[in-house]
Simulated scan of single mutants.
Amino acid sequence: MRGVPVPLCLCAALVFVGSCGWGGPVEDESGRLPAAPVGVTAAAGSATTVHVMWNAVPSAAGIHGYEVYRGTTKIEDVPGSQHMVDATRLQPATRYVFTVRARDTDGRLGPPSREVRATTPAATASDHSAPTRPGGLRGRTAGSRAVQLSWDASTDDRDVLSYDVYQGGSKIHSVGGAQTATVLTGLRPGTRYSFTVRARDAAGNLSPAGSPVRLTTAGSDDGRDTAPTDFRATTRLGGDGAYYLDLVWVAPRTDGVVTEYQVHLDGTAATSLVFGGTPPPGRATYSFYLGREAGEHHRVRIRARLPDGTWRGLSEERTVTTGATAVP
């Protein structure tokens, strides 16, 4: 998801380790690399932090993650579903330069984005007072993939430096303290979202969240584009005399890495599985216990939880019979 500033008059984490240092792009024989990220911005979030954001990079192979650099030093690796990061432990009153590079799921590292600059404000005297919570959060959908948000300004004993926008419990965007509106893009059609806003001062004190606003984007999304593909299901007799269901599928192509799935058996969610680290490349597999009776018929499907936290479309349905091969 990506936020786009507009004028005031209107808007279980995985870390993927990539290359260290600034080295050259990694490419395969085809020479196809992820594009350089565009829409990169950097804005001070406090005297010691800078908020860096960029647009998602399209890639036929899918984006595995992004590398964020301060000067020539890599400071962060983030998953492909994340398009922002807070650079921390910076010096007050200092100018910094940032760039971003994309790495696809085949390991190819793209070229750096254009350089963006941000200057942290001077450190203030001891300040432990957080700004007041932003009030009056309101919003409206702007088509099927964007929303406009606006809110009432917070107050602080010094100054409000920035506002952080959250989707659920995840920070997804930040704007300057003089701005009380933003546009969020990159959403999914026909999806319900909940947003909140918090204010931050130069000392990094964060206000409580204001009341949430809930919006549903226009249109519909049947989930077919984000359903697991090439789904297969078979049963087998285990050494303990019980039957097991063996599943094989290819992860959906989406913005980021999918680590959680839900298996539906006979129309009901039967079990969930979560990969504890980076999922295996290519085909994924999973097995679970069905019972000891032969000749039982079952219908099975699977769906993925995307990096934005939403469950998407179910795969094609397969029919299996204990003691027999599945029928596609």
Rank of each mutant, 00 (worst) to 15 (best):
G65F: 08
Y163N: 07
G24L: 13
D28Q: 13
S154M: 01
R138D: 07
R253P: 03
S287G: 12
Q167V: 00
L10R: 11
A118Y: 07
Q262P: 03
T72C: 04
S129K: 15
S154K: 00
P134G: 04
G21K: 13
L237F: 14
E296H: 12
L187A: 07
S287D: 09
T72D: 14
R200G: 14
V116F: 04
G186M: 05
G256A: 05
V165C: 04
R133P: 02
V52F: 04
T322Y: 10
R70M: 07
E260H: 08
H298T: 12
L8R: 04
Q148W: 13
P7D: 12
A35P: 13
R32K: 13
N205A: 09
R224I: 06
R299M: 09
R140E: 15
S30C: 12
F231K: 01
G176Q: 07
F288L: 10
D308V: 06
L149G: 00
A218S: 09
A294S: 07
G139S: 10
P121I: 02
A60P: 08
T48R: 02
A130M: 06
S150W: 01
L14W: 11
S174D: 11
A42N: 00
T105K: 08
T271N: 15
S220A: 13
L247A: 05
S46I: 03
P131R: 02
T216R: 15
D28R: 11
H173C: 12
T105M: 05
S174L: 10
A142W: 12
G177K: 04
R108T: 06
T229E: 06
G21S: 12
D164K: 02
R89Y: 09
A227T: 07
T119P: 10
T49G: 02
R198F: 08
A35C: 10
S211Q: 07
W311T: 11
E317R: 09
S19G: 14
H83N: 07
Y286Q: 15
T72I: 09
G31F: 12
S129L: 13
E260Q: 10
A209W: 14
A13T: 15
G313Y: 03
W151L: 04
G277I: 07
Y193R: 12
V78D: 05
T196N: 07
V38F: 01
R214A: 15
G291K: 08
S81R: 05
R145Q: 14
G143L: 09
D156M: 03
G139Q: 03
W151D: 01
R236H: 02
D156K: 05
R236S: 02
E27R: 14
G291Q: 06
A294P: 09
T268I: 10
D255G: 13
D222T: 01
L265D: 01
R103V: 06
R70Q: 06
F98M: 03
P328V: 03
V15F: 12
A102E: 01
G176D: 09
H298C: 09
R108C: 08
G204W: 02
V300I: 07
S211A: 09
